[in-house]
Design a protein around this nucleic acid. Structure first.
Lengths: 209, 209, 209, 209
DNA sequence: AATGAATGAGCCTTCATTCAT
DNA sequence: TATGAATGAAGGCTCATTCAT
């Protein structure tokens, strides 16, 4: 899977995006691969994109808005992907398991996406007011719905606040991927998903017989 | 509890720290209460501390080093506190529960500490090379040791990688405190600890009978 | 003669240099007339040029690079001038004499040029790595070639290392102009050239008959 | 020969210089071996000397005064040395030759001395008002006197202004040593003196017969 | 004789951003 | 659609220097 491989796959009739805009986004992404967002200058972005700095401000409100647009594209792609991934799966726990796998997998495949989400965006107050943040909340709601679905179907305990469960799930995922993202270590979605689900579904306590 | 209330509590005979240094640290802490680190200028810090900007650079390598020193002091205090908190507790799970409570509690009580750790420090590559980061890793090791202790005493499952368990614990804690920290919401250590332990110890899966 | 009077004399169809760049260079030159380079601030330069400090850094790597660019323009002009001056002169010694005159004359006419070359540039290690320094070496080579030409034509002794001769020539010129430059005293190219050539060509030893 | 080897050689009954002062001077000298004066900070000097920065200001008016004191010590030593070297030499030209050798030799042996004199001191207007500058002028006078002595004894031409001769001599020496000083190349007093005297005494012009 | 603590002043530099063309 | 030129605003940081002890 390659998120953002091209920008018109999902909607062939959209009028082609301005090439300048695309180049700018690609430039930032490629720079983010090796550099912290704050350490990247607009001059650098423009140079890498082969355009002038001024053009950035034609398409984006400011530098941070550009970051949010990049993030948004990633999120949209992930949204599409996730929907696809969950299709045809029965049972809330099975769906959650798949979601965990998809989540870890997208981080494993798109380090830049992970980096933006885990470290770059959340630092800045602006983010929480951005349209992009809403996408994240939507995703968060999806997880919550899945949990509640599981409670109703009696797959999941009803004596735990669903939001706490969600925190446990998302927190574990992020923690587990964090060092991979920061230090560029490999992330293995399959193994991690298995361990994580075992942990989250059954708990760490050893059953005595 | 008030971490950092004074700097000589634990070692009364240390020669007094230069007052300037103390004032600078205090100033940054107080500014962090209402402002993001990057948005705080050295001029502001100096003014609040009642010293000159130059003095900051006498005691700290740069602005970020100052942040790390602040974090270090918090971490050291938390280390002392945690050791105290764990005294006299029997059983690995009980200790883990207490640790979770202490962790959440210190975030609840010291929002600035939490903010630095959760959002300010980890953004910057420097952090991972700092001496302070080592303290965090030490803490991380403590958690791991507790988990392994639990495995040996057969309180904790031995079919889960201890590191995954640690990620689950620390990730959940951070996720659960995160919004409290970012949006200034209240954090309730007692309730959160209970829910979290219930989740982590027993799992989310509903037992059929 | 007024070196640097305008920047497009020699190449009328070059696309006009950005006016800001020109103004900055002019500003530094005018400031150097009464002030040491290190004592001149970028703020001053910008103000005198009627631009912002930031613009300086658009066109020059740093303050010192600006100095080197100024020097480079002087050197280029001097190069052109010298070539012109030597045209039509026969004999290596006659050419050397003319070169000495041109050299002294350019110092006499452009104190700022002299100041940069004799005191400002050579202090700083950067200078010796600069592209501008290469121009100086080129000039130095020209002198050496002239000397060697004289040796071949048997006008100049062949029992002296040409490089030592060059040191004698250039060293004498600089020494003789130095106090003029430092203390703002008048420099008389005609008289000085005559004395200097008499000294260098014939030596100080009195011939006995 | 090692100038400045110890500071009381020449005057055994002077009361011992304060050790702090000596250490500071030594520190600056040792730093000047590898670093430009302006790039050396008082903090560095103090550290190298093993004293506090404040102490520098007990013994020296300011940082530049310290440089001048160092230079002064070198000059005094050279003065003593030169006097010694010229003893028993007959003839103005022979004395000049010896002086040239001594001059080149002291630069060859004491690069730091040469560096201060050739590049560090003369940059700064302060220098020309300093007491140390007077020592340099004294030396300059000595050279002039030697020249005039030669004119009187009819060893040296009387149709050249003695000052021009002096410029030729000193200028050649400095030029010839300059690159040695800047780029740390070896300087050979014997060979250079021979070439230089040949050049200065007899001139570069080839005698036709 | 020497120091620890602190300062004043300002400097170079950076960077996101704008606007006329 | 895109650019070249220029800017505003501050910002971190350095360094020589002072003074009470």
């Amino acid at each position: 899977m390659q998120l953002l491989a091209n920008n018109f796959t999902k909607n062939p009739k959209t009028k082609p995006l301005p090439p300048g805009r695309v180049k700018i986004i690609q430039a930032l992404i490629s720079l983010l691969e090796h550099k912290e967002f704050n350490a990247i200058t607009t001059a650098e972005i423009a140079k890498r994109a082969g355009v002038t700095e001024a053009l950035i401000y034609k398409y984006f409100k400011d530098k941070r808005d550009l970051l949010h647009q990049v993030l948004r594209e990633y999120l949209e792609q992930y949204g599409v992907q996730l929907e696809h991934d969950l299709k045809g799966i029965k049972g809330a726990l099975n769906k959650l398991r798949k979601l965990i796998w998809s989540h870890i997998n997208v981080y494993a495949t798109n380090k830049v996406f992970a980096r933006i989400l885990l470290v770059e965006a959340r630092t800045h107050p602006d983010y929480y007011k951005s349209e992009t943040y809403n996408l994240v909340k939507q995703y968060s709601d999806t997880v919550l719905n899945l949990i509640e679905e599981g409670v109703l179907s009696e797959e999941i305990r009803d004596d735990l606040p669903p939001k706490v469960i969600r925190h446990g799930i998302l927190g574990s995922i992020e923690q587990i991927c964090f060092s991979g993202v920061i230090f560029g270590r490999e992330i293995s979605p399959d193994k991690l998903t298995e361990d994580l689900c075992e942990l989250l579904f059954k708990g760490i306590e050893r059953k005595r017989n």
